[in-house]
Computed example of a mutant assay.
Amino acid sequence: MKISAKVSNSLNHHEVWLDTNGTVSQLNIPSRPTGFGSSANGGELLFLSLATCFCNDLYREAAKKDITLSKVEVEASGEFTAEGEPGFNLTYEVAIEGDAPKSVLDTLIAHTDKVAEIHNTLRKGVSVTLTSK
């Protein structure tokens, strides 16, 4: 699966495109009040990525086990200090409702934590390479 995200920014103009295997969608994130940059910061989008990945993966893994989920809530958070320093204390909380007993839903959450791709990418600590156009 090939995934990319693109940002185009100029005065009072901010566009975000997401692409997964050629399926493109846009995400509506306005410019900062100054007109330049994004109103959402990278940390917020990182934590949104963690929450979104886990939410989607819960539905995927539940379907494999014939569990129907009726509600999923995921809240991811963390901290950043000085400019240029990596984030720390990354955590997330999950609450789900479905047609299975609580013990089965708890097992589903634990299993999904082991297979969530974004989480495992961060846990592994992959390299990020800058290229130029």
Rank of each mutant, 00 (worst) to 15 (best):
G43K: 12
L50V: 14
N21P: 00
T107Y: 02
P86W: 09
K102E: 15
Y92K: 13
S31L: 01
K102W: 02
H13I: 01
G35D: 04
K65H: 10
K102Q: 14
A82E: 15
T107V: 04
A100K: 07
K124W: 00
K133E: 11
S38K: 03
I109Y: 04
V72F: 08
T107L: 09
E85M: 13
L130C: 09
L18T: 14
L48G: 06
V74H: 00
V24I: 14
T23V: 09
G125I: 06
I118F: 11
L58H: 04
K114V: 04
R32Y: 01
N120P: 05
S132T: 13
D57K: 10
G22L: 04
E85N: 14
L11Q: 10
V72H: 06
V94Y: 02
N21D: 15
F80S: 12
K2L: 00
P86F: 09
G35I: 03
W17N: 09
G43T: 05
L27Y: 10
E79C: 09
L11S: 05
H14D: 01
N9G: 05
M1T: 05
E97S: 13
A62D: 02
I3H: 06
L45Q: 08
T107H: 12
L27E: 08
G22H: 04
G35H: 06
F54Q: 02
K65V: 00
Y59C: 08
L122S: 06
E83W: 06
K71D: 14
K102Y: 03
T131C: 07
G42D: 02
S8M: 05
H111I: 05
R60G: 02
E117F: 08
Y92Q: 11
L45M: 13
K133T: 08
I109Q: 03
S103V: 15
L105G: 07
A62S: 07
T34A: 11
L105A: 05
T121E: 08
V126Q: 10
S25N: 01
F36N: 13
C53M: 07
L18D: 02
K114W: 00
S38N: 11
L122I: 14
T131G: 09
N120H: 06
K124I: 05
I67Q: 04
F47Y: 15
T52C: 11
T20M: 03
V115F: 06
P101F: 03
K124A: 13
S127D: 13
A40Q: 13
S31Q: 09
E44Q: 15
L108G: 03
N9S: 11
L46P: 00
K133D: 11
T23L: 11
N56M: 13
V72P: 01
G125R: 06
V7C: 07
K6D: 01
T20L: 03
T112C: 02
K65L: 11
S70Y: 10
N21W: 00
S49Y: 05
N28W: 01
S127P: 08
E15T: 15
D66S: 15
A95L: 06
D19Q: 08
S38E: 01
L90I: 15
N28P: 00
S39L: 03
E15Q: 14
S127C: 04
T112L: 01
